[in-house]
Design a protein around this nucleic acid. Structure first.
Lengths: 336, 336
DNA sequence: CTGAAAGCGCTTACAG
DNA sequence: CTGAAAGCGCTTACAG
């Protein structure tokens, strides 16, 4: 059966305490004893149980990523989440941490945290006055918030420069002669990622002397289907718009598809800028101009920050802001 | 701090054994005691630790999905895997199981299984004579193999009807007048998913009286980039081909993009059939004709099968074959 | 119907 | 440098 620390101890003719010591690089164990034990461990392919260890230590080498139900499209639908989680997984793997996948639905059921004694949490895009947010804080375990813009000092947070992203995308469109620019957002609130980007959008508009027109902001366009539906709303707008800035690449893909079905071509009839730079964006037809954020790296940063927090290591900056950049491809063009 | 079974016992004025009994619906506990304990559990928001429980029981309510390194494109790149894992997660959630994400790389490191006492494994697309396969079997824990075609009775396996899929896609193309049909595969072997589909391809060809030409089979086209490169290979083929059957949707997307960049249009210049029916396939331009498999359901089936195995429940059929169907969209057309 | 006790596989003071 | 013992939070025969 499974080999335990006892087996190793017996085989080596020492106590389990000694084996435990070499396992943890602790205690004063003579070099030769340690060596012998190491050899036997390798031989028997012994791996200490995190269960037993965790029961004593209160740590399990297990963390979770929480993605709130239905933001920016489904979890399965948006590669953004996968690249992110992939980054998290990469960032924890070397430190012998594993990540547990946990879909938190409307019930806000967080019992898995207690059940599995999860060591820490990475939470993506949560609203600071949601029930879920309060439940998470109540857990009082190491947590890193991503894309959440929570106005609460002391929290560990990772963001991209969303305001800049909103600004750059809009400015690019303006520089190509567009003046009527639709902004397709997921959900509008008075804070959060989309709000920051909206601020950037407004800033670019103002800078160019263009008036902000709230009717040009279309909601519920965060998912592919949402973007698809936004195409119809866009078409039926009273003013003639010549460009759209969609705050997610999958939303942009949906929008382009919707336009295509109505006989509108991108960028000939309408220029489109996306947001995220998921890997599909290079392969769509036309390829997508977008605001690039390094999603994978972002996940890795969050993991690093969380592990530092778990291990009680000091961090110089709890609030990390990652850069974004404009990636010009084929979905935008100068206005004729 | 964390509330334990002791706290509940003290509060209820009973022993921990009794609390444990009501927790597990075991033992003979008087209705009123049970009720009182239940109330206190709810009140104190007590969740039993799977750590402690697992230490005793040897079960952790934790399973893992293993996706071999780099097949059908990267894990992050191919929505196929996410939909699959999403299905698995759905299938386990109701049974209070969680899934641990584990990227197994070239080192074939499976130590997380022992470390976390994982209860079971779902393995996707593994080669029966790989080192990894042998290591997995050596673990001797409940396992379900997906898309693996392992010729070993007694194993739990889940597949789709890949031969039929290969047949249907090819036949569709033939029915539209195509006779020179390129087959873009991931990796060719003498067994496995792509091999089955190749068999279907050959069958359709034979049925139509068309000769099989090995030069029309292009390898390394399982990923998006692979499909993209396949476009060039396809163009430089000595014979004039009018259609391609790509054994993954993301490969097909890459191929279409590659063709597009060389000035070839789909389906006007070349008809393309994909495989999988990931959710993007409806949104690409043109939308993709493909062989649909219900990936989410497949993941769920695998989860069901695994849980049955873990719980020692009898299953009528260990080897599950799920259906596929042809989904005709806009990337294929009659030859002119 | 209920409780005392052993034990799961580790770690950690504390002796020696 | 090394070991005996307690304890982490549960479950499970076994008594009563």
């Amino acid at each position: 059966m499974k080999v335990t620390i006892k087996d190793i101890a017996r085989e080596a003719g020492v106590s389990v305490a000694t084996v435990s010591n070499v396992l943890n690089g602790k205690g004063r164990v003579s070099a030769e004893t340690a060596e012998r034990i190491q050899r036997i461990i390798a031989e028997k392919n012994f791996v200490p149980s995190t269960l037993a260890r965790g029961l004593k230590n209160k740590n399990t080498q297990l963390i979770s990523v929480i993605v709130p139900y239905l933001k920016r499209g489904n979890f399965e639908e948006n590669p953004f989440f996968w690249q992110l989680i992939s980054g998290v997984e990469m960032g924890t793997k070397d430190h012998k941490f594993n990540v547990m996948l946990t879909r938190v639905e409307q019930d806000n059921d967080l019992s898995f945290v207690q059940m599995h004694n999860v060591d820490g949490l990475i939470v993506v895009g949560i609203d600071a006055d949601s029930e879920l947010y309060r439940s998470i804080l109540a857990l009082k375990i190491p947590t890193v918030f991503m894309d959440s813009y929570i106005d609460q000092p002391g929290l560990y947070q990772v963001h991209n420069d969303d305001l800049l992203g909103g600004y750059l995308g809009t400015k690019h469109l303006i520089s190509q002669g567009h003046t009527k620019i639709v902004l397709v957002v997921g959900k509008l609130a008075d804070r959060g990622v989309d709000f920051q980007r909206l601020l950037g959008y407004k800033k670019a508009l103002a800078e160019a002397g263009l008036a902000y027109d709230a009717r040009l902001v279309l909601e519920n366009g965060g998912s592919m289907l949402g973007g698809y539906h936004a195409a119809q709303k866009l078409i039926s707008l009273p003013e003639k718009v010549t460009a759209a800035f969609v705050l997610s690449d999958i939303g942009a893909m949906g929008l382009i598809k919707g336009l295509y079905e109505m006989g509108k071509e991108v960028p000939a009839d309408l220029s489109v800028v996306g947001y995220d730079d998921i890997f599909y964006s290079e392969y769509t037809i036309p390829s997508l101009t977008t605001i690039r954020q390094d999603i994978f790296k972002k996940g890795k940063m969050a993991a690093d920050l969380l592990l530092a927090q778990i291990n009680g290591e000091p961090v110089t900056e709890k609030n990390i802001l990652l850069p974004v950049e404009l990636k010009v491809r084929a979905s935008t063009a100068k206005i004729l």
